[in-house]
Amino acid sequence: MKDIKILGTGCPKCKQTTAIVEETVSRLGIDATVEKVEDIMEIMKYNVMSTPAVVVDGNVVFKGRVPTATEVEAMLAN
């Protein structure tokens, strides 16, 4: 099971990212938890300076931009 976290302080881009990831996960039927992290102290633990960022199993895979559904799909396929 994959553990996916979306890091962001609640800006529109972060919500967009969450929607894309959630949609992709359910469309592909991937066994994963998607969690939104809005607490700034929690976010800073990942050493991310530009939000939104996507963390999968503890690794930062995207940061500072909204990934496309295709990118998320490719990333989840690995």
Binding site: G8, T9, G10, C11, K13, C14, I40, I43, M44, N47, V48, M49, S50, T51, G64
Partner: peptide, 10 residues
């Protein structure tokens, strides 16, 4: 404006 705080901390 929402990324100014993470930037500051970074």
């Amino acid at each position: 404006s929402c990324s100014s705080v993470p930037l500051f901390i970074g």
